[in-house]
Write a protein that binds this DNA or RNA. Structure first.
Lengths: 219, 219
DNA sequence: TATTATTTTTAGTCTTATCTAAATTTATAT
DNA sequence: ATATAAATTTAGATAAGACTAAAAATAATA
């Protein structure tokens, strides 16, 4: 059984690994977890002893298959809880991270699988990051944006392209969030703007730039 | 900010206090938490120093108002999560305790208040124990049982009188659980049995004894 | 290449929450 | 009332996870 701290380190190394290639160095982990390099050294040695990481002194650390599997379980839990918090409890996209950081450590495979089912097996979290399934499989990143749709097309929103932008705030204001259904009513050649019904409400206008930054699932 | 361990001690002392009067002794807490008396002494001294408990050496411990307030917050969280697990995720009554033991320590007042709202402010958990509201107020224990109803009366199920019995298993089998709607169709003088529609389905028969052990809210 | 700067690791300390064993207090029984 | 039993507390130890300061290894630079 992994401790909360071990899980946090595994998740951190997993995230850093997916951003760069090669071994992850001590300081990067320390920065990311807001801890000190000495603490990191201690922990990665522990993880290596447990067969969760491969570690070469002074060279850095990588997850083993076993370690990556555990990291993915934590990521899965984190993102499913985020979906729950946003879609079911009505939290905003930008307010759920800290709570999900806690919920991701609840121990119960049954719980998380039932939660997954309850949420109808979402593929992406409210920030647009993919949710590993029960086997650790991750859906490919979404590629389809609102801007490819034609009048009459209907879709659901997966996420925004740029997670940390004003766009999220704008979308919040016009009530567009994860899972929102959109219908393209009209496309105006003149300025490239889209007329879109949000959840079958009155049509609103979205610019090309906005449309190009909303990932969608075409229905 | 309380640690997980402090919260567990507070909750334990709260529960023991509600079962007996006078100060709670060290061994009772140790038994309940499956720890050793020496550990309990350490912790209750710590709680006393924080103003959460009043403690007299060799005499036992009681919660202060402040301590009871904190304990009630934990109890509230525990029981709300139990409702969520049973009503929303489809867990059985008897399988939720261990998971709720973990969830009760998630730190976020907003979260728990949103969860409360999401669950439509339940007054009792799946075991029939009352859920403190956001101010720590507890509803009085239910007193009305199914056996006082007349044909035509409709009610919802609050809980079973005897929590740790075969009755729960029986009720599970006939799909009666927290919040289930019942309608009394007929009462048979001959053997005191009730004919009852469960969620507007086909009528089934319940004995007097069963009817006397189901707490209900009359509608 | 030699020297300095940076990174990483080691060694030793601290805190929290445990534990065991011993000492002390309270309760029980002759 | 006094000896014995039971309960409780103290003292000291341990483990996890963090820290600081110092040592060692690697990287960068003159």
């Amino acid at each position: 059984m992994l401790t909360q701290s071990e899980e946090n380190y595994l998740k951190c190394i997993y995230h850093l690994s997916s951003k760069s290639n090669g071994a992850i160095n001590t300081n990067a982990i320390a920065d990311s977890l807001e801890t000190k390099a000495a603490s990191v050294t201690d922990m990665i040695q522990k993880l290596a002893n447990k067969g969760l990481a491969s570690y070469v002194k002074y060279k850095g650390v990588n997850l083993t298959n076993k370690g990556e599997k555990e990291a993915l379980k934590v990521v899965r839990k984190h993102r499913l809880w985020e979906v729950f918090l946003v879609k079911e409890l009505g939290f905003n996209w930008d307010k759920v991270h800290d709570i999900a950081e806690q919920l991701e450590h609840i121990k119960s495979t049954t719980l998380i699988d039932k939660l997954d089912k309850f949420l109808a097996y979402p593929k992406f979290d409210p920030h647009g990051d993919p949710i590993p399934d029960a086997n650790g499989e991750i859906a490919p990143n979404p590629t389809t944006t609102l801007s490819i749709l034609k009048p009459g097309d209907v879709c659901t929103v997966i996420c925004a392209k740029d997670t940390s932008s004003d766009l999220l705030l704008f979308l919040d204001r016009i009530n567009i969030s994860l899972g929102t259904q959109l219908e393209v009513v009209d496309y105006l050649e003149f300025d490239g703007s889209y007329s879109v019904k949000v959840d079958n409400g009155n049509p609103i206008t979205l610019s090309t730039k906005v449309a190009e930054n909303i990932f969608i699932d075409k229905l």
